[in-house]
């Protein structure tokens, strides 16, 4: 099989170049001053940081960056907590109709977001209004909303992991007089910690990447996220490619950072455990 090894190797080298080319081009453009912008060379000719500095010096963008951080982190934390509870319930208790509830929970992720934009917009602006406070255009609104796609994901991922923890450990703890809450906090939680970390990172990335809901359900700098900043930027200035590329690169950065860590789990997560990566 030596030949097949070499063919595969060449194929994969080409593929890697193709995969990296768009990201590389983005980096190249982000490091070009305005005068050199229309050069067609695909190499970085010198380290020019002004595009990044311009983006990072814009207070609006920093505000958006902060919003994204808050929304993604709170959502991931919320989803992990609720997901762990739900997964514990599903994995350790016999629940009448549990299968159906579980199935319904999972289908939430498959729903097309564009379909739910309108009702959510109406609910957020007209129903969930408490005095002066309305859920529309708030970070809390986004944090709750992102549960639609992140919570089913987390429940599935965590249920798979909890199912892998032997039931005997629970029983042993119960024999020693532990309550259900203590089983969860002293037996399950320590063992599920790696799984929780993976879930946290993946849901964080999904929340960070989300655009459509954020664009529709927020309107002011107080709640808009990085992805909307990027989209706004394109519609406002069509030709300032350097800064746009810098902004796109900053949006992509978290994904690049966690890539090596999550790649083993991403297939399991995205196929709802039907396949083990």
């Amino acid at each position: 099989m030596r030949r097949s090894g070499i063919t595969s190797f060449i194929l994969w080298v080409c593929l890697t170049i193709l995969t990296l080319l768009p990201v590389w081009w983005m980096l190249v453009v982000s490091m070009r001053p305005r005068v050199k912008l229309y050069s067609k060379s695909v190499l970085i000719d010198d380290l020019y940081w002004d595009n990044f500095l311009a983006v990072l010096n814009s207070s609006t963008f920093l505000q958006y960056l902060w919003n994204s951080m808050v929304v993604a982190t709170s959502n991931a934390a919320l989803v992990c907590a609720l997901g762990l509870l739900a997964a514990f319930g599903l994995s350790r208790f016999k629940i009448s109709g549990g299968d159906n509830v579980f199935f319904w929970l999972i289908t939430n992720r498959m729903a097309p977001p564009a379909v739910f934009l309108l009702p959510l917009f109406l609910l957020f602006t007209k129903w969930f209004v408490f005095g002066d406070f309305m859920l529309f255009d708030t970070k809390i609104g986004l944090i709750l909303l992102y549960c639609v796609f992140n919570l089913p994901f987390a429940i599935w991922l965590l249920k798979g992991m909890l199912d892998g923890i032997p039931l005997e450990l629970d029983e042993a703890a119960r024999v020693d007089g532990a309550t259900t809450g203590q089983v969860l906090s002293h037996v399950i939680l320590p063992l599920a910690r790696p799984g929780l970390a993976v879930t946290f990172i993946l849901t964080w990335i999904f929340a960070w990447n989300e655009y459509l809901f954020a664009a529709t359900l927020t309107s002011s700098a107080g709640a808009r996220t990085v992805t909307t900043a990027l989209a706004e930027y394109v519609s406002v200035t069509g030709t300032n490619w350097g800064e746009m590329a810098a902004m796109a690169f900053l949006t992509t950065l978290p994904a690049l950072v966690v890539l090596g860590f999550v790649q083993k789990h991403i297939v399991t997560g995205l196929t709802f455990g039907a396949l083990k990566g």
């Binding site: 890697t16 995969t19 790649q263």
Partner: peptide, 15 residues
């Protein structure tokens, strides 16, 4: 190869 999966769709479009 896993990289494109985790990149934000909006950034993919921009790129």
């Amino acid at each position: 190869h896993t990289l494109p999966i985790v990149v934000a769709p909006i950034a993919v479009g921009a790129t």
